[in-house]
Amino acid sequence: MAFNINYRRLVIAAVIIILSPVACNNGTEAPFPSNPITFVVNWPAGGGMDRAGRLVAEYARKRLDVPIAVINVSGAGGATGVRHVAESDPDGYTVGILGASLVASQYINPNANSVDDIDIISFIGPDPAALQVRSDSGINSLEDYVQRAQSGPTPIKNGNDAPGGVSHIAATLLQRLTNIELTLVPYRGYAPTVAAIVSGEVQSSTLPVHQLIDQHEAGDIKILGVMSEERHFMAPDVLTFKEQGIDLVTGDWRAIYLPNNIPEDRHAFLETLFFETISDPEFQEAARQLSFFITPMMAEETKLFVEDFDRSLYPVLLESGLVKARQK
């Protein structure tokens, strides 16, 4: 027989492992949370959303007696993970992190959940978009850029996401607010866009600040402006668009959410838990190291923010012909 005596120990070990979760679960009503919490990241492991999610989960874990298991449920531009949370049991044991893609995909993708299908409980922070140009383009300011775009011999080529992606939205908003016409060149994600502007295939890009910060410091790329309320801590010398007279605030952001209909007390517990986690200076320092902007907000404020974002986004999507699922 192929299976000889050596396997006996392995088998005993396996029995113990299989039986252990059964043994622990003896059904008495304990205060929430008494079981492990599942934390759903709606993008693949290794990306920005994943790193942010894992960091939040790690620090939230320190305030709890139960473990938090981070899982990645990705697909359909982030919509699959949101559906996973929205359809989970409303017992407070499933929490998720999401970003701006939620707002865009509810219009683009007929199968995506809308903002109303979930309950956003706290805001982590924005990841503002910025406008970068190659230094050899001779463009030195936002004003130069707009002028070149309006009167240059050929349109400026801008590297961005596929339609509906954050950097595509930023580029479209930029066109609308400054009355310029760019050639929007689509790339699959941030890394290829970075490669494109570094290699000179495109002249400008609308990526988040940290993507090109090294090249900005080296002088190959110039960041003309940040599309946020305040300047970015990684590039304090770069003016915001508002400071340069253009009211453009956009980019990605990250927030924590639950399925709808969570019992009142658990909802309050989780809202406080994550707000305190994100406000924790130790967490904020760790987040800065990973180049995340942290501006904690409670549920009420976050909802207003998302509504506001929704309102500014809708006309852009409508104009790009991307509103295919729900009308407003």
């Binding site: 299976f3 396997y7 088998v11 396996a14 029995v15 492992i17 299989i18 298991a69 899982i71």
Partner: peptide, 25 residues
């Protein structure tokens, strides 16, 4: 007995690696 042993080892191995170690839901 062979089948029982094979099924036991197979299932516990997969359970241990994927469900227990990696936490596949």
């Amino acid at each position: 007995p062979l089948v029982a042993m094979g099924a036991f080892i197979g299932v516990s191995l997969i359970y241990f690696v994927f469900l227990y170690l990696i936490g596949v839901p």
